[in-house]
Design a protein around this nucleic acid. Structure first.
Length: 856
RNA sequence: GCGGGCGUGGUGGAACGGUAGACACAAGCGACUUAAAAUCGCUAGGGCUUAGCCCGUGCGGGUUCGACUCCCGCCGCCCGCACCA
């Protein structure tokens, strides 16, 4: 028998959709819109299974909503700026732009082969000058609105590559590329005032009802609001410093009488002031600055301090003096860069106090301890309790104590963990910051009519550093204000800026301004955003900020300051790992393709015949070599098989393990449905019979329940359940023959539903069987079916009967039976009576339509 | 350390507080075949004294007529954040 041939069907239907403009989105005020968006990819060169999953999920939603009558916007583009292009350019001696656009071409072809329902006419790349021109315009408006400023900031500087490194690019204190010892250097950089919006960004998280709780929590923690007190210590007269006071920030002002030292950051102005005057302090500060700032190092780093010799005076006792240390664990950019230490109730302070022999005085006593004897040894007490050893605070609860202190000294202050967003990058392949530096006029924005500030094409990437700095002419410009000689800003924007508003641009990709009001009002917000949880914080937070900034500058309405109505974060695609050991016992990883079945069914390496050990399933990665290339799967099975497998079994928010057997299974199922459809296509549909046999009626009910259920499952992102229902429907169809007209009718009805319901998941395949069944219009243009109410319920239902909570019988009762009737039927059932053991029922619980429980 | 999530057959997973294991993968048996592939059918949580019964959702308690589901306490795994005062 003929088989379904994806290699023929898939390109054929892609062409049909394309010719009919099936997925083109046009503004139409008369129809409700639905904006589905998947996180756009970085054009690395080829798509990977993570993309296949992400975009398959999004396509299910887009196609389903289209079937439901929504005017669907489902665009695709490219997050195309970034370092990999520069690295590739250096390695291959090409231009980053050439490399990027070639990759885009290759990946676009792959995505098209997957049959995703994108409106390709809206496609753009963030490196298109037309896009970044508008981003520059936004930058200028935001600058004018006071949302952007310049300040000096300490960065990780790689002295060999002459570039700034992100924290993640510093490994064991060295640059990840050059291996050079990273320095902390102060540079003048551009910042977005995201921290000014910290409170607002935090409060608005409550409104993000259709975001995963996990993501909302991660954002809340990232913003990190804390309420505390800022107050001054008077500095005791000394020979070292002219400063009169030291301002500290604390959230535990209730423990002020447990203070035994003050500490400042190595970057604190006071430290700088006295560094030269205290022997050894300069070296200590330098040492601190070289300290590794990675997480792993932080965890193990020792608390170190340096006594300055300066003392401060306790705010409530002029005779009480506290030594001031410079300490390596105090951060300059949180609070005031200075603290007071209360060792008894803060673990870090305790470690520090034990090391330097400072007093440890407990001032909070737990409820169940004796205030007279309570002491802190090696573990700081951070729980609730009453204040002790604290003069006028004695006997108060912590909250009362905080009140009492705050009413006498200092100012209440809310601090956030969130810092301003530094966007300057000393790189070529990014959006140029549209600024000119003039000796006379200072910082001058490039006039909007001169935008875009285009990247020069003729750049030399064969040396370290920013090629824009070295370009012979690009920097030299005339000052837009005075006309005198001036220099362009050579920093480019963080690529997170590019992805912070692309979703808005998709609504109007050709507009001459960043956004078009009519388009924005119609299409925004994104109704369903789908992507990896790895973007839970930065990308999503920056986007929320950027949209607020776009609102403040008149580019978005108030309603769009939260751009993503609903967010779904999908799991990873994993695969088993295979390894052998080298002579030193280190694992050598083997790709699935390099293996074959050995004699005793175990896996062996094709070339050497060595048997491999099978490791756990982990995220597909080059280093573990457990990667399966989507292109190979499409070539072997077709896009629909890959899509069907991706959607089967695993709930979309969990990891899915890619297995060869699973793919085979998916392919087999499609062939099976194909055979069924062919068989049914060969029979007449006929008119709807007046009566149905029990079997035909049952199939009709299954069909309509499937219609109902698949819709619900798609709405709730449990696509695996939708797939299971479709399996069940297929099973139900194949159980029956076509000998009678009512069966023929029911089977055809079921198969037509099957085709329509499968379309969001396996669209080419669905088109093929839809056509096979005799339809001339594509299934994508066919409305989603409605389940027939009367076929969703049963006249007679089977109810389980429990005796003392254990199922003992089943009874068939009319669906509309009264409770009493059901109870009578249950109690007279032979099996139920046997387990009642002749005793009278103490209680009978009847849950209509569900269960009966007899308690004896 | 802080925060969050998860734990169900050989495997992925189903199950408004109401028949645990739907559906699938892998497996086994059978049919068709000279044979294989493909296909179709059947079996399948564990146990027993097997018309049937008992035990089973990481472990221990609790609430309830009834708990995979809710509550408390453990154990294990995964993820996020982390010197944030």
């Amino acid at each position: 028998m003929e088989r379904y041939d994806a290699a023929i069907a898939e390109p054929k239907w892609q062409k049909v959709w394309d010719e009919r403009g099936a997925f083109r989105a046009e503004r139409d005020e008369s129809r409700p819109k639905f904006y589905v968006l998947e996180m756009f990819p970085y054009p690395s060169g080829k798509i990977h299974m993570g993309h296949v999953r992400n975009y398959s999920l999004g396509d299910v939603m887009a196609r389903y909503k289209r079937g439901r009558g929504f005017n669907v916007l489902h665009p695709m583009g490219w997050d195309a700026f970034g370092m990999p292009a520069e690295n590739a350019a250096m390695q291959n001696n090409t231009h980053p732009g050439t490399w990027t656009y070639q990759n885009i071409d290759a990946m676009r072809a792959q995505l098209k082969a997957m049959g995703f329902s994108y409106d390709w006419e809206r496609e753009f790349a963030t490196c298109d000058p037309e896009y970044y021109a508008q981003q520059q315009a936004l930058f200028l408006d935001m600058l004018e609105a006071g949302l952007i400023y310049r300040k000096n900031s300490v960065v990780n500087w790689d002295p060999v590559d002459q570039t700034v490194l992100a924290n993640e690019q510093v490994i064991d204190g060295r640059g990840w590329r050059s291996g050079a010892l990273v320095e902390r250097r102060e540079l003048n950089q551009w910042f977005f005032r995201i921290s000014d919006m910290a409170d607002e960004l935090l409060a608005a998280i409550d409104g993000l009802k259709d975001w995963p709780d996990k993501v909302r929590l991660m954002q809340a923690n990232w913003i990190g609001r804390s309420e505390g007190l800022e107050f001054d210590f008077e500095i005791a007269a000394n020979d070292l410093s002219q400063s009169e006071k030291l301002t500290v920030y604390t959230t535990r002002h209730d423990t002020l009488f447990g203070a035994s030292f003050a500490a400042i950051s190595p970057d604190h102005p006071l430290a700088a002031e006295i560094a030269g005057k205290v022997p050894g302090l300069e070296d200590f500060i330098t040492e601190c600055r070289q300290m590794d700032t990675t997480e792993a190092a932080m965890e193990t780093a020792e608390k170190k301090g340096f006594a300055t010799g300066i003392e401060v005076i306790h705010p409530f006792d002029p005779n009480w003096r506290l030594p001031v240390y410079v300490a390596n664990f105090i951060l300059m950019d949180y609070g005031t860069g200075a603290i007071f230490g209360c060792p008894a109730h803060d673990q870090r302070d305790l470690d520090f106090a034990r090391k330097y022999g400072l007093d440890v005085v407990a001032v909070v006593c737990p409820e169940d301890s004796d205030p007279a004897t309570f002491e802190v040894e090696n573990e700081a007490y951070v729980g609730p309790g009453k204040l002790i050893n604290s003069r006028f605070l004695d006997g108060m609860e912590i909250a009362e104590g905080k009140e009492a202190v705050a009413s006498r000294v200092g100012t209440r202050k809310v601090n956030f963990r969130l810092r301003d967003w530094g966007v300057s990058r000393q790189r070529y392949w990014g959006c140029p910051i549209p600024i000119v530096h003039c000796e006379k006029c200072g910082i001058v924005p490039v006039p909007k009519e001169d935008l875009p500030v285009k990247l020069p094409d003729d750049v030399a990437l064969d040396q370290p550093g920013n090629p824009l700095d070295r370009h012979p002419t690009w920097r030299q410009v005339c000052c837009p204000e005075c006309g005198g000689p001036a220099l362009r800003e050579t920093d480019t924007m963080d690529t997170f800026a590019d992805s912070s508003w692309y979703f808005a641009r998709f609504t109007c990709p050709d507009a001459k301004t960043p956004t078009d009001q009519a388009d924005i009002n119609y299409w925004m917000n994104v109704d369903q955003y789908i992507g990896g949880v790895e973007h839970a914080i930065l990308h999503l937070l920056y986007s929320r900020f950027w949209c607020r900034a776009m609102h403040l500058t008149g580019h978005l309405p108030k309603s769009a300051i939260e751009p993503f109505e609903a967010l779904f974060t999908q799991g990873m695609v994993t695969h088993e790992t295979y390894s052998t050991l080298d002579s030193e016992g280190r694992p050598i990883w083997h790709a699935p393709d390099d293996l074959t079945a050995g004699e005793d069914q175990t896996l062996v390496v094709k070339e050497t015949g060595e048997s491999v050990s099978v490791g756990g399933s982990t995220k597909m990665s080059k280093s573990k070599r457990n990667v399966v290339d989507p292109e190979a799967i499409i070539a072997a099975y077709g896009a629909d098989t890959a899509r069907w497998f991706m959607l089967s079994d695993s709930p979309p928010d969990r990891d899915v393990e890619w297995t060869a057997a699973g793919v085979e299974g998916a392919a087999r199922f499609l062939q099976r449905v194909w055979r069924l459809a062919s068989e049914i296509a060969g029979t007449d549909r006929g008119d709807e019979p007046a009566t149905f046999s029990e079997a035909a009626f049952a199939l009709r009910k299954t069909t309509h329940r499937t219609i109902q259920g698949v819709g619900e499952d798609i709405e709730s992102f449990t696509f695996n359940k939708a797939v299971a229902r479709l399996y069940e429907l297929a099973n139900a169809i194949s159980k029956l023959g076509s000998e009678d007209s009512d069966l023929r009718f029911a089977r055809r009805e079921a198969m037509e539903a099957m085709a329509r319901l499968m379309e969001p998941m396996v669209p080419h395949f669905a088109e093929e069987i839809w056509a096979l069944l005799g339809h001339s219009a594509p299934v994508v243009e066919t409305p989603w079916p409605e389940a027939q109410e009367d076929l969703l319920s049963d006249d007679v239902i089977v109810m389980p009967v429990q005796v003392n909570g254990k199922k003992r019988a089943e009874i068939s009762v009319p669906a509309d039976a009264a409770k009493d009737t059901i109870e009578d039927m249950a109690l007279t059932d032979a099996s139920v009576q046997r387990f009642m053991d002749g005793k009278p029922p103490k209680k009978v619980i009847v849950v209509p339509g569900r269960i009966v429980n007899v308690v004896v």
